[in-house]
Design a binder for these strands. Sequence first.
DNA 1: GGTGTTGTTCGATCGTTGTCGAACAAGGGT
DNA 2: ACCCTTGTTCGACAACGATCGAACAACACC
Lengths: 101, 101
Amino acid sequence: MEPHEPDLTAVPVTAVLAALADDVRLQIVRALAEGGEAACGSFDFGVSKATRSHHLKVLREAGLTRTRAAGTSRLVRLRRDEVDKLYPGLLDAVLTPRPAA
Amino acid sequence: MEPHEPDLTAVPVTAVLAALADDVRLQIVRALAEGGEAACGSFDFGVSKATRSHHLKVLREAGLTRTRAAGTSRLVRLRRDEVDKLYPGLLDAVLTPRPAA
DNA sequence: GGTGTTGTTCGATCGTTGTCGAACAAGGGT
DNA sequence: ACCCTTGTTCGACAACGATCGAACAACACC
């Protein structure tokens, strides 16, 4: 299967924002930002594995994550450098659970 | 009519992102960031005035804009200071039409 | 080869949302 | 008073998206 991990510059800004505008996906991104690489199954946020797979696909196709196979698992990691380069401040602004300014 | 302009801290991050995750609304925000205060009617992006009104409502209820009456018009402005304070880098990261990194 | 684990994909459901025309409301001008 | 301009609100409709269970695929391990 083709992973289909597009270049971030090829993804519309609205698609990146839409990918982040979901609570489950935001939790996944936060977990990735903290824990680095993680298996798909490690994200149990009260949704079925079908839904989880869907969310990971959305993040991947938005250019936010990369996935590589490792045995029966798949390891996901955040493309932090590229995102920070193209959208500086975006992840920092969004990653904190409660800004509490 | 109650304007219903919530405090930004009371709006979930996902709602702010969702408000920005639309092409028409992003164009509006960009126009506001450039031109300062503007009347609702000045945003003609190929949608009907009903749709435009809807988008301005979404932006307002996401805590991103403020609206004040001025004669028959309504002037809208971006709450830039507050957004920058709570989500530093968000608008900067999103406002450029083509990042071209 | 068979079994178990891990993800993906399919089809269906159901809520959300972007869009429009039409009706309505509020002001300003003449 | 009348009309025009400016926005909002009200259905209605179509498209999208989040969710699930079930079926399928790939791999490891015994």
